[in-house]
Design a protein around this nucleic acid. Sequence first.
DNA 1: TATGAATGAGCATTCATTCAT
DNA 2: TATGAATGAATGCTCATTCAT
Lengths: 230, 230, 230, 230
Amino acid sequence: MSGPTKAELRKERIIDTARRIFAEKGVHAATVSEIAQEAKVSEGTIYEHFSNKENLLFHIPEHFTQRRQRIGVYHLKLIQGAANKLRAYAYIYTELFHENPDYATIVLLYLKGNANFRQTPGYQAIRNWFRFLTEIINEGIESGEFRPNVDAYIVRALIMGAIDQVTVNWLMSGKSTNLMETVDPIVDAVMEGILNPEVDEDAHWSNWRRTKARLRNKTIPAKEKKEQAG
Amino acid sequence: MSGPTKAELRKERIIDTARRIFAEKGVHAATVSEIAQEAKVSEGTIYEHFSNKENLLFHIPEHFTQRRQRIGVYHLKLIQGAANKLRAYAYIYTELFHENPDYATIVLLYLKGNANFRQTPGYQAIRNWFRFLTEIINEGIESGEFRPNVDAYIVRALIMGAIDQVTVNWLMSGKSTNLMETVDPIVDAVMEGILNPEVDEDAHWSNWRRTKARLRNKTIPAKEKKEQAG
Amino acid sequence: MSGPTKAELRKERIIDTARRIFAEKGVHAATVSEIAQEAKVSEGTIYEHFSNKENLLFHIPEHFTQRRQRIGVYHLKLIQGAANKLRAYAYIYTELFHENPDYATIVLLYLKGNANFRQTPGYQAIRNWFRFLTEIINEGIESGEFRPNVDAYIVRALIMGAIDQVTVNWLMSGKSTNLMETVDPIVDAVMEGILNPEVDEDAHWSNWRRTKARLRNKTIPAKEKKEQAG
Amino acid sequence: MSGPTKAELRKERIIDTARRIFAEKGVHAATVSEIAQEAKVSEGTIYEHFSNKENLLFHIPEHFTQRRQRIGVYHLKLIQGAANKLRAYAYIYTELFHENPDYATIVLLYLKGNANFRQTPGYQAIRNWFRFLTEIINEGIESGEFRPNVDAYIVRALIMGAIDQVTVNWLMSGKSTNLMETVDPIVDAVMEGILNPEVDEDAHWSNWRRTKARLRNKTIPAKEKKEQAG
DNA sequence: TATGAATGAGCATTCATTCAT
DNA sequence: TATGAATGAATGCTCATTCAT
């Protein structure tokens, strides 16, 4: 019946303020005293809730992770087909950054490369969300929707790497570009690749063609015919 | 005839030491005094060459950028075909990280997200190298090797985003995985995409299919027949 | 009922210590750390009370200014006659230096010539005290006690300039002379001047005499007769 | 025949530059490196001529002292009458400040209160110039031009203290006032004093009158009659 | 004699963290 | 439990001075 306690609200206010100030001035330049002032608590109170400044930083994703868990995973399960799910995942992943640029700044610029963060429960939660993408990709492979020789880890790196990349550019450019519009092209490119199927494969010398052939010989014998025909 | 001057060697030694220590302990935790000590120069000498600690950080990529310019661009021009060039680019890009993990740490964890760095000549040099990939992709589109509806910015984000991603994972995992082995799979995936062409496109509902159709209608009318036939 | 708070006492102790050390070793040679140590506070506490070292320096006169305001001005108002007041002022002014040589050192050697200090409230307070002397002089002119052609600014410069001068000499000589004994002679000289009235004014050529005559013609016609008679 | 050597010119250029920069930014804020740069010599050269930064500071008055010695003393000896000489001295003293505000700044704000400077030959030269004023005053007492009970030290403090005072005010006000115009009023005031001889001495109670009487009883018995008559 | 790169001691200032109230 | 004054370790940076060339 009773909502969040006073202390919980206070804690959330601290995290919200920290997120904003960390993102605005950088984690190093931001001071605990400034966060306390803006959150309208004393510095001591911050240390009641967080063991130190870095610990406060590590708690910032918490709220967003929970939100994604509640909303994201639920909706994705309703979508049929791995391709559709993958696209939806990319949207949800990007949208969280788009709607919360301060969160994006902190995750992409401060937490991704922080070894200590990788030991926290906060990172485990994010990891679970990443694994969910792996599951989607594997589901697509199993269903035959995706090529059988697809490596889920690689595809995940492509999707998330590209989104991280364009998000950082978006953040650094003062959010002047349209982030959400890049989601579809990224997913499209990953879906279909960039090679032009209209072009005769033998038209030009290419170690790529040979690499591809080699890969297919190993993993997709069914395609051999077409390959030979090409 | 005379090689680098004493002062130049000294400066290089400072940068080399800074790179190592920044990467080892993090930029913030590293102290100028420690770098001076390990580089066997006085603290004052560091400030003779660099205006401040951050400026020293910003000079770290210089050497690598020059090296890449000399070697990378030269060799890439000898390779025929955009696909081959793109693969080679990915190799060179990854190899620099692989051979110089400290450099990778600094570029990926400290410089990519630093707004001040983006104002330096050091970033401009890196930018030129990025643009080179864009040129390769556009070359492939013009030659017909790549789909005409390919977006160079997106492909670049996919390639570099994925490599950055796997490199950070590699660094954070203590370099326990094999970084170079991920290059080919990444390039392969970008080349061919992940959709299984053996599967009937109408087998499942997919807004992706519709998106693809829309894109093709606009840009590759010649393919329509095949599309309709498939 | 409650006296000064703990924090106020602490602040006063910092100022007292700073005054002593600044005077002893010079403002530049004195270190904040030394002041902290001697005042038995941490360096951080100094910066809780003063924005920086110079700001601490600027707060040193505060206490003395207040004391003078309370005591000096009050007593001076009870004295009758501008000449008496002027003498008393000179005594009070000198006595403060005499009783507080460290304060004298700081005011005369460090603050008088500091442009930044002139922007502080501390200087305004001192200024008010200076103005009080101007008022005394003007009062003497109005009452006829002082010559009507007296320039208050000049007289103030004479009195205070002479006292500052002898005080600096006193300080630099290791306080070996008797500072207070110079007050009366200074005031006496300003009162009566140095010219010997017994000597015939025409006894020697003097552009001074002409200057004097010119001044009197302008402002004290009543004296002309005597002048001519003399 | 041969003028100053190259080295002498160099040394003078260093002193001139130091004077300007010390005055502009303050001795502490000025750096040896900046002085070297502006004087177009190397830092090392400065240390060829001066043992350290303070020593350079102490050499700044040299040139002016010599100039004053050459011009000042020579001209003063041509003037007849102590009063005239005293006025001339005040003019010369003030004019040097007026014509060379940087020199004034350094002497009044940095050297007057520097104990180390008092050990240098530079200070001895200035001291000689001060003594010259004492001699003038004593000459006036002996000739009967000045009151016999005049204290030369006090008069010197009055004249020079007042001029120093107004010069510092002039410097701190950005030289917006007219410094030279204050010389005559200062000398006039010292000559004649500020008491109004027209006013009946008994018209008001005054410990000053009593002080004066006491002083006269001691030293100028000749005046007793006039005093009693008054 | 002149140079100016190199030195390194020295210091003001900051700020995460603590703890008495 | 909350406060915020007090702490003091930690460090980037300066600059007078030196000395190899």
